[in-house]
Simulated scan of single mutants.
Amino acid sequence: MLLLDRHGPKEDVWERAETLCQAETNFVIAPFGAIAGSPFVHSDIRIGALLEPNRTIDEVAPFFDRFDLIVIHFANAADGRGFSTARQLRQAGFKGILRAFGPLISDQFPQALACGFDEVEIIGAAASRQPVEHWMEALSRISHFYQRDYGANDSIPDQRLARAAHV
C-alpha cells in the first residue's frame, strides 16, 4: 500500500474495520453502511467512511459532520465515477479529507487532486509497478486543465474568457 498527497508519501494513521466497535485506534475507516446504521459514537473517535461507487451524495451528505475522512473506492483504474463523486462531495460542502482508494495509475494523480481528493491510496500491483517518483512526476506533466480545478479558476476556458474580456 502506498499513500500519497501532493507533497509525496505519507504515513497512514487510519485503521480499517468492518464496524466502529471493532476498531483499536481513534482513527477508524469503516464501510459507510456500517457507520450510517450505528448510533453516534464518542467524540474522541475520528471516523472515516469507505464509499463504494454506487453511493449517492444525498445518502452521504447528512453525515458530513461525523466524518473526518471519506475514502472513495475505485474498483479499477478505468472507473471514473470516483472522480465525479469527489467533485460532488466538495460541491455539497464536505470539508474533511478525501482519499481515492484502489488500483489507480500515476497519470490519474493530477486529475484526482483537481477533483477534490487530498490523497490517494494505491494498492496491490499498481503500488509496486509505479514508484513514488512516477506519481510525483505526473503532477508536473500537466500544467493546464480544461476542467475547473477545485478551489481555483484557472482552467483553459477561464483563461480564454479572461483574455477575450481584455481585447
Rank of each mutant, 00 (worst) to 15 (best):
M1N: 08
L2M: 15
L3Y: 01
L4I: 11
D5P: 11
D5A: 09
E11C: 05
D12R: 00
W14L: 00
R16H: 07
A17V: 02
E18I: 04
T19H: 05
L20W: 01
C21Q: 12
Q22N: 10
A23H: 02
T25C: 00
T25D: 01
N26C: 08
F27M: 01
F27A: 00
V28S: 00
I29K: 00
P31T: 04
F32L: 04
F32D: 02
F32Y: 06
G33H: 11
A36R: 15
S38E: 07
V41H: 09
V41E: 06
S43V: 09
S43C: 13
R46E: 10
I47S: 02
G48K: 01
L51W: 02
E52T: 15
E52P: 09
I57W: 01
I57V: 15
F63R: 00
F64S: 02
F64A: 02
D68E: 10
L69Y: 02
I70L: 03
N76Y: 11
A78S: 10
D79T: 09
D79Q: 07
G82S: 04
F83H: 03
S84I: 05
S84A: 07
T85N: 03
A86F: 00
Q91G: 05
G93M: 13
G96Y: 03
R99T: 04
G102L: 06
P103N: 12
P103Q: 12
I105E: 08
D107L: 10
F109N: 03
L113M: 13
L113D: 04
C115I: 04
G116K: 06
F117W: 10
D118Q: 07
V120G: 01
I123W: 00
S128K: 06
R129H: 14
V132I: 12
E133I: 08
H134A: 07
H134C: 07
E137N: 08
L139H: 04
S140D: 12
S140I: 11
S140T: 14
H144R: 15
Y150N: 15
Y150W: 15
G151R: 12
A152C: 11
N153K: 08
N153S: 07
I156N: 12
I156M: 12
P157G: 13
R160E: 07
L161D: 12
A165L: 14
